[in-house]
Write a protein that binds this DNA or RNA. Structure first.
Lengths: 148, 148
DNA sequence: TTTGCTGCAAATGCTTTGCATGTAG
DNA sequence: CTACATGCAAAGCATTTGCAGCAAA
């Protein structure tokens, strides 16, 4: 029915409404999304989809195990999820507006591998988060703050 | 009285028993410590110090504001605190035994600065966490697991 | 039919807070 | 004396879980 169906089946998950809808929210739009479980839950409510928050968490956890999404723990409590697109990248987070930009850097990747080796570790995973302030005038959160 | 007293005064904090004791726990030993609030709380109990867990959290938050300690959010819920020693460093965390090793790498630091600039950000802070498995036989948590 | 999914509500784990009392400066 | 600290208990937040009913394959 939906293109999401095959993605779910490929991941070995039953095709159910909550799963299709969560996947659609993550896929919607062109630019990469970094959404919390709560964000996704609210998006679903706005779409008129009655999906329980606990289910959103369960679905996201399953998606992560299946390699469909990646989970990131930025500073400040809640985790965010994004669609896995195969490419590895790190994140630059704006402390002012919360905007996230992805980047990847071969030099850093290589250094990390070297460091892990020299410390006698088998590198499994890593997270590199840069926090700063973007200089741009159209900092998204500025608008949001005026509203609040 | 204690050497900790002047550190506290310098930080503009009243010298109280909970603050002295928390500071002592963090300073004890030679190697850098990465302790959770709970860890510190238990250490205090073992020392026979009756300090409330809520107070430990408050003290650590104040220490962080004062620049006495640094807070890190590794994966898996709870935050850890370590004494600030002025030097910047990143962390390699063992997924098997939870052991933390510090390192710093000039090449990576320089790249991060470049990346932030090229993205139009003023870099404020960053966190680089490598996760892996240490190959060593004396993986601390192995012992702990046998006990449990 | 059978396995696995969902909603609901309650529980969890870490951390924060309100309030009355206590104490450093 | 006064401002700030503390203990205690309760609240808060993000996330997880038990359970009974439902639905996909």
């Amino acid at each position: 029915m939906f293109p999401e169906d095959s993605e779910l089946r490929r991941a070995g998950l039953k095709v159910t409404n909550p799963r299709i809808k969560v996947l659609q929210v993550l896929e919607k739009g062109d630019r990469p999304k970094h959404l919390s479980a709560e964000d996704i839950y609210r998006s679903l409510l706005e779409l008129g989809e009655e999906v329980n928050l606990a289910t959103v968490y369960r679905v996201l956890t399953q998606f992560e195990s299946a390699g469909l999404v990646e989970k990131h723990n930025f500073e400040g409590g809640h985790a965010v999820y994004e669609l896995a697109r195969g490419d590895h990248h790190d994140h630059m987070v704006c402390l002012t507006c919360g905007h996230v930009i992805e980047f990847s850097n071969a030099v850093i990747e290589k250094q990390q591998q070297k460091i892990a080796e020299s410390l006698g570790f088998l590198l499994h995973d890593h997270s590199l988060h840069l926090y700063g302030h973007c200089q741009k005038a159209n900092c998204e959160f500025k608008a949001a703050r005026v509203k609040a």
